[in-house]
Design a protein around this nucleic acid. Structure first.
Ligand SMILES: [Mn+2]
Ligand SMILES: [Mn+2]
Ligand SMILES: [Mn+2]
Ligand SMILES: [Mn+2]
Lengths: 146, 146
DNA sequence: AACATAATGTAGCCGACGCTACAAACGGCA
DNA sequence: TGCCGTTTGTAGCGTCGGCTACATTATGTT
């Protein structure tokens, strides 16, 4: 007998759009994690040094250096040789999106997920949470008593 | 006065581990999306052709071809020149992880997120949902009536 | 001041995953 | 059978983001 010719599970165009968006998000993901770490280090230690970043990000100091060059090129950080790293205006602004990170962690924990699993998952999830989803998470958190 | 020396917001080692895991997940992400698309196309159209994949994935046919070479190398698909693409055992198994995709979409929609936003976000989120989180999503879905 | 260690920089390598431009094979139809 | 549009293949390019190995600069201790 001939093929049943069922409709595709997901509309082609929408899936293509979704995947394109995901790839775009991955492109800015590194920048977000870096500025977040720099902001955190600056707040806690007074300055963000290369080695601290490497430790936090789980990469070598070489990778950090090359990535910082890209971040400098894109206007997120200002660096001088052998000095601490500072965020620019744009960098500060991008770092503020780290509030998303906090929200995601809190939301996962509110679902009964253990803290460690929540922390692990949040690091990847945060970059794919759109505005509607973020709003829904916050709504759920308010409803679930703080 | 000297620095307050507040503790870092997140423990260094845990953040490094989280980021490492996220990078690992990104490495398998492409493979997952491809085998999922191949399985879907095979089910709906009877066969998965290169051009269909390119359309679905939002990339050129060249990118698909190069990626398929990698998937073949890694044992997920079997291809012959100018023929349709088939999943291997391993490919089928990996495609089954597409159940995660469905769950994520359903979970997001159960939070009141509009279908389109849910579909867009899910494509990226799915790859960072660990077992505990997936279980929590399913739990929430059961609780929220089907 | 000298030295040793830590921090930072640089050269050069790799793989993944995008792309354009062009070439070859396939398939349907005049 | 021959032709033409579609599909598939390939050559060559670029960016990102990892790495090792080695060079240089800061820094702290004797
Ligand atoms: Mn992250
Ligand atoms: Mn991701
Ligand atoms: Mn998917
Ligand atoms: Mn996906």
């Amino acid at each position: 007998m001939p093929k049943p010719a069922a409709p595709p599970v997901r509309p082609t165009a929408l899936q293509a759009e979704s995947l394109r968006r995901t790839r775009r998000e991955h492109a800015t993901e590194t920048a977000e994690d870096y500025v977040e770490a720099i902001a955190d280090l600056t707040a806690s230690r007074g300055e963000a040094r290369l080695v601290d970043l490497a430790r936090r990000l789980g990469v070598t100091h070489v990778t950090v250096n090359r990535t910082l060059a890209r971040l400098r090129r894109d206007g997120y950080v200002s660096t001088r040789p052998y000095r601490a790293i500072f965020l620019t205006e744009a960098g500060e602004k991008l770092a503020a999106s780290g509030r998303r990170h906090t929200t995601v962690v809190a939301f996962l924990e509110s679902l009964g997920i253990p803290a460690k699993a929540a922390a692990l998952d949040a690091e990847g999830l945060e970059h794919h949470v759109g505005p509607e989803t973020l709003a829904a998470f916050e709504r759920h958190l308010r409803k679930a008593g703080k």
